[in-house]
Protein backbone atom coordinates (compact mmCIF):
# COMPACT_ATOMS: atom_id res chain seq x y z
CA UNK A 1 0.00 0.00 0.00
CA UNK A 2 1.34 3.45 -0.94
CA UNK A 3 0.50 6.30 1.38
CA UNK A 4 1.00 10.03 0.82
CA UNK A 5 1.17 12.14 3.96
CA UNK A 6 0.64 15.90 3.90
CA UNK A 7 3.14 17.43 6.26
CA UNK A 8 3.23 21.08 7.08
CA UNK A 9 6.53 22.69 8.02
CA UNK A 10 5.86 25.47 10.48
CA UNK A 11 7.76 27.99 12.62
CA UNK A 12 8.53 26.58 16.06
CA UNK A 13 5.26 27.11 17.99
CA UNK A 14 7.34 27.95 21.06
CA UNK A 15 8.33 31.24 19.42
CA UNK A 16 5.32 33.53 19.05
CA UNK A 17 4.23 34.41 15.51
CA UNK A 18 3.88 37.84 13.97
CA UNK A 19 1.86 39.35 11.17
CA UNK A 20 3.67 41.53 8.67
CA UNK A 21 1.86 44.90 8.98
CA UNK A 22 2.42 45.64 5.26
CA UNK A 23 1.62 42.39 3.52
CA UNK A 24 -0.63 41.25 6.38
CA UNK A 25 0.61 37.70 6.07
CA UNK A 26 2.20 35.55 8.71
CA UNK A 27 5.90 36.31 9.09
CA UNK A 28 7.88 33.10 8.91
CA UNK A 29 11.41 33.54 10.11
CA UNK A 30 14.06 31.04 10.97
CA UNK A 31 14.07 27.32 10.44
CA UNK A 32 10.78 25.54 10.09
CA UNK A 33 9.99 22.29 11.83
CA UNK A 34 7.64 19.38 11.22
CA UNK A 35 4.23 20.24 12.65
CA UNK A 36 3.67 17.90 15.60
CA UNK A 37 0.13 17.29 14.34
CA UNK A 38 1.61 15.70 11.22
CA UNK A 39 4.00 13.42 13.12
CA UNK A 40 0.89 11.34 13.95
CA UNK A 41 0.07 11.04 10.25
CA UNK A 42 3.60 9.97 9.34
CA UNK A 43 3.60 7.33 12.09
CA UNK A 44 0.16 6.05 11.10
CA UNK A 45 1.25 5.78 7.46
CA UNK A 46 4.42 3.88 8.38
CA UNK A 47 2.44 1.41 10.49
CA UNK A 48 -0.19 0.84 7.78
CA UNK A 49 2.45 0.23 5.10
CA UNK A 50 4.27 -2.08 7.45
CA UNK A 51 1.11 -4.11 8.13
CA UNK A 52 0.28 -4.25 4.41
CA UNK A 53 3.69 -5.86 3.88
CA UNK A 54 4.70 -3.58 1.03
CA UNK A 55 4.56 -0.09 -0.45
CA UNK A 56 6.03 3.19 0.70
CA UNK A 57 5.28 6.47 2.40
CA UNK A 58 5.68 9.71 0.43
CA UNK A 59 5.67 13.05 2.23
CA UNK A 60 4.10 16.03 0.47
CA UNK A 61 4.67 19.58 1.62
CA UNK A 62 4.33 23.14 0.43
CA UNK A 63 6.73 25.54 2.12
CA UNK A 64 8.72 28.70 1.32
CA UNK A 65 12.46 28.92 0.66
CA UNK A 66 13.03 25.28 -0.28
CA UNK A 67 12.55 24.37 3.37
CA UNK A 68 13.28 20.70 4.06
CA UNK A 69 14.10 20.43 7.78
CA UNK A 70 10.60 19.24 8.68
CA UNK A 71 10.63 16.79 5.77
CA UNK A 72 13.94 15.38 6.97
CA UNK A 73 12.32 14.62 10.33
CA UNK A 74 9.58 12.64 8.57
CA UNK A 75 12.12 10.87 6.35
CA UNK A 76 14.16 10.03 9.47
CA UNK A 77 11.05 8.46 10.98
CA UNK A 78 10.95 6.14 7.96
CA UNK A 79 9.19 7.76 4.99
CA UNK A 80 10.77 6.77 1.65
CA UNK A 81 10.73 10.08 -0.20
CA UNK A 82 9.28 13.58 -0.29
CA UNK A 83 7.75 16.03 -2.72
CA UNK A 84 8.24 19.69 -1.85
CA UNK A 85 6.51 22.57 -3.59
CA UNK A 86 8.35 25.78 -2.93
CA UNK A 87 7.54 28.85 -4.97
CA UNK A 88 7.64 32.56 -4.16
CA UNK A 89 4.43 33.11 -6.07
CA UNK A 90 2.67 30.99 -3.44
CA UNK A 91 3.46 33.35 -0.58
CA UNK A 92 0.35 34.08 1.46
CA UNK A 93 -1.67 31.47 -0.45
CA UNK A 94 -5.07 30.73 1.08
CA UNK A 95 -6.22 27.23 2.01
CA UNK A 96 -7.92 26.52 -1.34
CA UNK A 97 -4.83 27.54 -3.35
CA UNK A 98 -2.62 25.44 -1.08
CA UNK A 99 -5.06 22.56 -1.54
CA UNK A 100 -4.79 22.86 -5.34
CA UNK A 101 -1.01 22.74 -5.16
CA UNK A 102 -0.94 19.81 -2.73
CA UNK A 103 -3.57 17.89 -4.70
CA UNK A 104 -1.48 18.16 -7.86
CA UNK A 105 1.66 17.07 -6.00
CA UNK A 106 -0.12 14.14 -4.31
CA UNK A 107 -1.35 12.90 -7.69
CA UNK A 108 2.26 12.26 -8.69
CA UNK A 109 2.69 9.80 -5.85
CA UNK A 110 -0.35 7.76 -6.99
CA UNK A 111 -1.24 6.84 -3.42
CA UNK A 112 -3.85 4.36 -2.23
CA UNK A 113 -4.34 6.47 0.84
CA UNK A 114 -3.74 10.15 1.65
CA UNK A 115 -3.27 11.17 5.29
CA UNK A 116 -3.31 14.69 6.73
CA UNK A 117 -3.84 16.11 10.21
CA UNK A 118 -7.28 17.39 11.20
CA UNK A 119 -5.76 20.83 11.61
CA UNK A 120 -2.36 22.45 11.57
CA UNK A 121 -0.83 24.00 14.67
CA UNK A 122 -0.29 27.41 13.12
CA UNK A 123 -3.15 27.76 10.63
CA UNK A 124 -5.84 25.50 12.07
CA UNK A 125 -8.37 26.13 9.35
CA UNK A 126 -8.97 22.40 9.17
CA UNK A 127 -10.54 22.66 5.74
CA UNK A 128 -7.50 22.00 3.60
CA UNK A 129 -7.59 18.18 3.65
CA UNK A 130 -11.22 17.93 2.48
CA UNK A 131 -10.51 20.51 -0.20
CA UNK A 132 -7.67 18.26 -1.38
CA UNK A 133 -9.97 15.23 -1.34
CA UNK A 134 -12.62 17.04 -3.39
CA UNK A 135 -10.04 18.23 -5.93
CA UNK A 136 -8.73 14.67 -6.29
CA UNK A 137 -12.24 13.18 -6.46
CA UNK A 138 -11.60 11.08 -3.36
CA UNK A 139 -13.90 10.18 -0.47
CA UNK A 140 -12.68 11.30 2.95
CA UNK A 141 -12.99 10.49 6.62
CA UNK A 142 -12.00 13.26 9.01
CA UNK A 143 -11.16 13.17 12.74
CA UNK A 144 -9.81 9.63 12.82
CA UNK A 145 -8.80 8.37 16.25
CA UNK A 146 -8.15 4.83 15.03
CA UNK A 147 -7.42 3.44 11.55
CA UNK A 148 -7.18 -0.11 10.23
CA UNK A 149 -6.85 -1.28 6.64
CA UNK A 150 -7.03 -4.56 4.76
CA UNK A 151 -5.55 -3.01 1.62
CA UNK A 152 -8.84 -2.42 -0.16
CA UNK A 153 -10.69 -0.27 2.38
CA UNK A 154 -10.10 1.55 5.66
CA UNK A 155 -12.00 1.20 8.90
CA UNK A 156 -11.89 4.39 10.90
CA UNK A 157 -13.15 5.41 14.33
CA UNK A 158 -14.23 8.98 13.74
CA UNK A 159 -14.53 11.36 16.69
CA UNK A 160 -18.04 12.81 17.02
CA UNK A 161 -19.77 15.21 19.36
CA UNK A 162 -21.41 12.34 21.24
CA UNK A 163 -18.67 9.68 21.05
CA UNK A 164 -17.40 8.12 17.86
CA UNK A 165 -18.62 6.56 14.62
CA UNK A 166 -17.18 3.45 12.99
CA UNK A 167 -16.76 4.44 9.36
CA UNK A 168 -15.77 2.28 6.42
CA UNK A 169 -14.38 3.71 3.23
CA UNK A 170 -13.02 2.14 0.07
CA UNK A 171 -9.52 3.01 -1.13
CA UNK A 172 -8.26 5.26 -2.53
CA UNK A 173 -9.37 7.87 0.00
CA UNK A 174 -8.17 10.61 2.32
CA UNK A 175 -8.18 10.37 6.11
CA UNK A 176 -7.37 13.10 8.63
CA UNK A 177 -5.94 12.02 11.96
CA UNK A 178 -6.23 13.51 15.43
CA UNK A 179 -3.42 13.66 17.99
CA UNK A 180 -3.21 10.31 19.69
CA UNK A 181 -4.26 8.13 16.74
CA UNK A 182 -0.87 6.47 17.26
CA UNK A 183 2.24 7.34 19.28
CA UNK A 184 4.84 8.85 16.91
CA UNK A 185 8.31 7.28 17.11
CA UNK A 186 11.42 9.32 17.69
CA UNK A 187 13.76 9.16 14.71
CA UNK A 188 16.69 6.82 15.47
CA UNK A 189 20.27 7.82 14.76
CA UNK A 190 20.27 5.36 11.87
CA UNK A 191 17.06 6.90 10.58
CA UNK A 192 18.49 10.40 10.75
CA UNK A 193 21.58 9.34 8.80
CA UNK A 194 19.49 7.48 6.20
CA UNK A 195 17.18 10.48 5.76
CA UNK A 196 20.05 12.57 4.38
CA UNK A 197 20.24 10.37 1.30
CA UNK A 198 16.50 10.06 0.64
CA UNK A 199 15.08 11.80 -2.44
CA UNK A 200 13.26 15.13 -2.10
CA UNK A 201 11.73 16.27 -5.37
CA UNK A 202 11.36 20.03 -5.46
CA UNK A 203 8.73 21.59 -7.70
CA UNK A 204 7.24 24.94 -8.68
CA UNK A 205 3.51 25.62 -9.09
CA UNK A 206 4.02 25.76 -12.84
CA UNK A 207 5.59 22.26 -12.87
CA UNK A 208 2.31 21.01 -11.47
CA UNK A 209 0.22 22.94 -13.92
CA UNK A 210 -1.57 24.76 -11.13
CA UNK A 211 -2.99 28.10 -12.14
CA UNK A 212 -2.92 30.66 -9.40
CA UNK A 213 -6.08 32.69 -9.33
CA UNK A 214 -6.59 35.65 -7.03
CA UNK A 215 -6.90 34.49 -3.43
CA UNK A 216 -10.48 35.73 -3.19
CA UNK A 217 -10.08 37.07 0.32
CA UNK A 218 -8.04 39.74 2.04
CA UNK A 219 -7.09 40.86 5.49
CA UNK A 220 -8.38 44.36 6.09
CA UNK A 221 -7.05 44.97 9.58
CA UNK A 222 -5.04 43.55 12.44
CA UNK A 223 -5.96 45.00 15.80
CA UNK A 224 -5.13 44.20 19.40
CA UNK A 225 -7.91 42.25 21.11
CA UNK A 226 -9.70 43.59 24.11
CA UNK A 227 -7.70 42.38 27.06
CA UNK A 228 -9.07 40.67 30.08
CA UNK A 229 -7.67 42.11 33.25
CA UNK A 230 -6.25 40.11 36.10
CA UNK A 231 -8.33 40.39 39.26
CA UNK A 232 -7.54 39.54 42.83
CA UNK A 233 -4.78 36.97 43.47
CA UNK A 234 -4.51 35.44 46.93
CA UNK A 235 -2.07 32.99 48.53
CA UNK A 236 -3.67 29.94 50.06
CA UNK A 237 -3.01 29.94 53.80
CA UNK A 238 -5.42 27.09 54.35
CA UNK A 239 -8.51 29.26 53.99
CA UNK A 240 -8.61 30.12 50.28
CA UNK A 241 -11.65 27.87 49.85
CA UNK A 242 -13.65 30.33 51.95
CA UNK A 243 -12.81 33.14 49.57
CA UNK A 244 -13.93 30.95 46.64
CA UNK A 245 -17.22 30.15 48.40
CA UNK A 246 -17.77 33.84 49.08
CA UNK A 247 -17.07 34.70 45.45
CA UNK A 248 -19.52 32.03 44.24
CA UNK A 249 -22.11 33.46 46.63
CA UNK A 250 -21.54 36.97 45.28
CA UNK A 251 -22.15 35.61 41.80
CA UNK A 252 -25.29 33.83 43.09
CA UNK A 253 -23.99 30.53 41.75
CA UNK A 254 -24.64 29.02 45.18
Amino acid sequence: MNVAVCVKQIPDPATPGKLDPNTKTLVREGKLILDDSDAYGVEMALQLVDKAGGGEVTLVSMAPNSEVSGLRTGLAMGAAKAILVSDDTLKGADALTTAKVLAAAIKRAEPDLVIAATESTDGYTGTLPVQVAELLGLPSVTFAKHIESDGSAVKVNRQTEAGFDEVECTLPCLVTVTAGVVEPRYPSFKGIMAAKGKPVEELKAADLGVELGSPGQEIVEVAPAEERKAGEVIQDEGDAHQRIVAFLEELKVI
Partner: peptide, 15 residues
Protein backbone atom coordinates in the same frame (compact mmCIF):
# COMPACT_ATOMS: atom_id res chain seq x y z
CA UNK B 1 -8.71 35.60 17.09
CA UNK B 2 -4.99 35.06 16.51
CA UNK B 3 -1.96 34.60 18.73
CA UNK B 4 -3.97 33.06 21.49
CA UNK B 5 -6.64 35.72 21.34
CA UNK B 6 -4.28 38.67 21.88
CA UNK B 7 -4.97 40.06 18.42
CA UNK B 8 -7.95 40.22 16.08
CA UNK B 9 -7.60 39.89 12.34
CA UNK B 10 -10.41 41.30 10.21
CA UNK B 11 -10.88 39.85 6.75
CA UNK B 12 -13.35 39.82 3.87
CA UNK B 13 -14.04 38.10 0.60
CA UNK B 14 -13.03 39.80 -2.62
CA UNK B 15 -14.06 37.13 -5.10
Amino acid sequence: AVFGGTAIVRARFTG
